[in-house]
Simulated assay, not measured.
Amino acid sequence: MGAIRRTAGLIGAAAAMAALAGCSTPPAPAAAPGPSSRETRPGGPGREQPQSPKTTGGPTAVTPSAPACPEGGVRVVEGGGDAAMGLRIASVRLVNCGTAPYELEGHPQIRLLDRKRAPVEAEVKHGSADITTGVPSMDAPAERVTLQPGQEASFGMLWRNTVTEFDVPAVEGWAVEVTPKPGAPRVTAELTAPVDLGNTGRLGISAWSAVDR
C-alpha cells in the first residue's frame, strides 16, 4: 500500500512540474498577414511611396510671332543713321518677306508722314547735289537688285536740319511711306528718330542697293 502511495505521489509531482513547464513556454508567433491592397514600399510596412505631383493645366508661355508679311511681299523698317554739323544721313531697309524673288531698280518713291500720319511737305530729289557734296553712296548709279526670300535692300536719305526762317514751321517726318517700285503697294516704316528737315524742305534719296548679310 505504501509503495502504491509513493508511486501516485511521484506521478502527481511529475504532472505538476509538466504543467508549470507548459506555462513558461512562450506562445507560437501569429501567422504573417497576407498581401493587402496597398503595395508595401521602402519606408516602412503599410506606408505608400510618395507620388510625384501631377502637372496641372496652367497657362503656358506664348512665343511672339513675327509680323505678317504685307500684301506686296515686302516690309520696310528703319535702318541706321548718322548726324554731324546739321547734316543728317539715315537709311530705310526693305526685307523680302514673301516666297518669291523680288526685283528692284532705280529709286523708290517716298513721302514723309508726321506724328498724326499726315503727309509732310518736302521736295524729294535723287542724290545729294542740292544738299551737300562728297557722299558717294548717295550718288551711286542705279542697279537692278534681285532679292531672294529673306534678303534685304536699302536706300539712303540725306538732309540738313537747318532753320533759316523763324516764321516758317520746322518740318519733322516720323514715318516714311515707300513705294518700292512702280505699281507696287505702299509700305510704311515707323521712325524712332525723325527726319527733321527744319524749314529747308529738301530731302535727297539714293537708289536701291543690296544689303550684305
Rank of each mutant, 00 (worst) to 15 (best):
Thr63Trp: 05
Ser65Ile: 03
Phe166Gln: 13
Pro119Arg: 00
Met157Arg: 00
Gly80Gln: 14
Cys69Asp: 02
Thr99Phe: 12
Gly58Ile: 03
Pro169Leu: 01
Ala14Ile: 02
Ala90Ile: 05
Ala14Leu: 10
Trp174Tyr: 09
Ala32His: 12
Lys116Val: 11
Gln148Ser: 15
Pro35Val: 02
Arg213Glu: 14
Arg6Gln: 15
Val195Phe: 07
Glu39Asn: 14
Ala142Cys: 07
Val76Pro: 04
Gly134Arg: 05
Asn96Trp: 01
Leu104Arg: 00
Arg38Gly: 05
Gly81Glu: 10
Val135Leu: 12
Arg75Asp: 10
Leu112Arg: 00
Ala13Ser: 14
Arg115Gln: 14
Glu105Ala: 08
Leu197Gly: 04
Lys116Met: 13
Pro35Glu: 15
Ala142Leu: 04
Thr56Ala: 10
Pro35Ser: 07
Arg6Glu: 15
Asp196Glu: 10
Gly79Gln: 02
Val74Trp: 03
Thr192Ile: 15
Ala21Cys: 13
Pro101Ile: 00
Ala32Ile: 09
Pro59Gln: 00
Glu165Phe: 11
Ser52Trp: 13
Cys97Met: 07
Gly12Ile: 09
Asp196Leu: 04
Leu113Ala: 08
Ala170Lys: 06
Ala122Asp: 05
Ser65Leu: 10
Ala118Asp: 12
His126Gly: 09
Leu191Asn: 03
Arg6Ile: 15
Thr179Phe: 02
Cys97Arg: 01
Glu105Met: 12
Glu143Asn: 13
Thr56Tyr: 08
Glu172Tyr: 07
Gly106Asp: 11
Gly134Lys: 05
Pro185His: 00
Trp159Leu: 03
Ala30Pro: 05
Val163Glu: 08
Ile11Pro: 07
Ala30Asp: 03
Asp114Arg: 08
Trp159Asn: 00
Thr162Pro: 03
Asn199Ala: 01
Trp208His: 05
Ala30Lys: 08
Lys116Trp: 11
Pro182Arg: 14
Ala31Lys: 12
Ala68Thr: 14
Thr99His: 13
